[in-house]
């Protein structure tokens, strides 16, 4: 089935975006990203470790010519920090597609929406293509879309919590109103969560901990790949209506 995900004019066959944090090694990370069938991986920007120049480098394992790098602003708590980080990311990598997240506090890592909107406007004015991590508030999601974000990425639940899609009604409202891709970012814990997000009509799912913190990350990555495909196909197929009472699957005529 030819059903690409189009973000900022570029076409992707996979609807699963994976992170590159929390893995036992960059090698395991690369293996998991391949098992997930991911084409886009999120990456962070940090200071070069001056005391150990021989430290393993992400780019040697999860290679930028194999995966589309999506630089994030994880750890940024103000619009100014996020904009500064992504300008450096553009200089380091040379690409404009970025994931913006501006967080409110360490305990919840919940997005700070006024700062997120401010950063999105500054980045878009500076030529970035902004995929934006946001709350599941449809009003703010609309404001971010109107500001020019190329993908709206509401949380299913808190980052790293694995609680799944806590507010499917709001996710559905965002899906219905959006003309850019909606990608659930954060909260997925297991395969059924990813399938639920896709059955709600989301265009994709972004996850990190659900794969990295599984006992077998490679197997979970494969499970997530199938869950996203299954959820997408179920959404496109259109589910049967729910009924209060039974409806026999075998014909009643000819009963003995």
């Amino acid at each position: 089935m030819n059903d690409p995900l189009i973000i900022a004019g570029k076409s992707y066959a996979s609807r699963l975006i994976v992170g590159t944090g929390k893995y036992a090694s960059y090698q395991q990370n690369a293996d998991a990203a391949r098992a997930a069938g991911a084409e886009i991986v999120t990456v962070a920007l940090r200071r070069v470790n001056l005391s150990n120049p021989d430290e393993e480098r992400l780019t040697d394992f999860v290679k930028p010519d194999e995966f589309t790098y999506l630089p994030n602003t994880a750890g940024c708590f103000t619009a100014d920090e996020a904009v500064r980080t992504l300008r450096l990311a553009r200089e380091a990598g040379g690409w404009n597609l970025v994931k913006l997240e501006v967080l409110a506090d360490q305990k919840t890592l919940y997005p700070n929406m006024p700062e997120t909107l401010k950063a999105a406007e500054a980045l878009i004015a500076d030529g970035f293509e902004v995929m934006v991590y946001c709350s599941d508030d449809p009003v703010y999601a609309k404001m971010l879309e109107e500001a020019g974000c190329c993908a709206i990425m509401p949380l299913g639940s808190l980052i790293g919590s694995g609680l799944g899609i806590m507010n499917p009604v709001n996710i559905r409202l965002i899906v219905e109103q959006s003309r850019v891709p909606v990608i659930v970012d954060a909260g997925v814990g297991t395969a059924s969560d990813a399938a639920i997000a896709m059955e709600l009509g989301c265009d994709g799912v972004l996850m990190n901990t659900a794969i990295a913190a599984a006992k077998d990350p490679i197997l979970m990555a494969s499970a997530m790949k199938h869950a996203v495909i299954a959820g997408r196909e179920a959404y496109l197929a259109g589910r049967m209506p729910k009924k209060m009472y039974a409806d026999p699957s075998s014909p009643l005529a000819g009963l003995i």
């Binding site: 992170g19 893995y23 999120t42 940090r46 200071r47 070069v48 001056l50 994880a74 901990t209």
Partner: peptide, 10 residues
Amino acid sequence: IEVVQFVGGG
């Protein structure tokens, strides 16, 4: 001076 590079992240 800040010298930064890409590292693993979610």
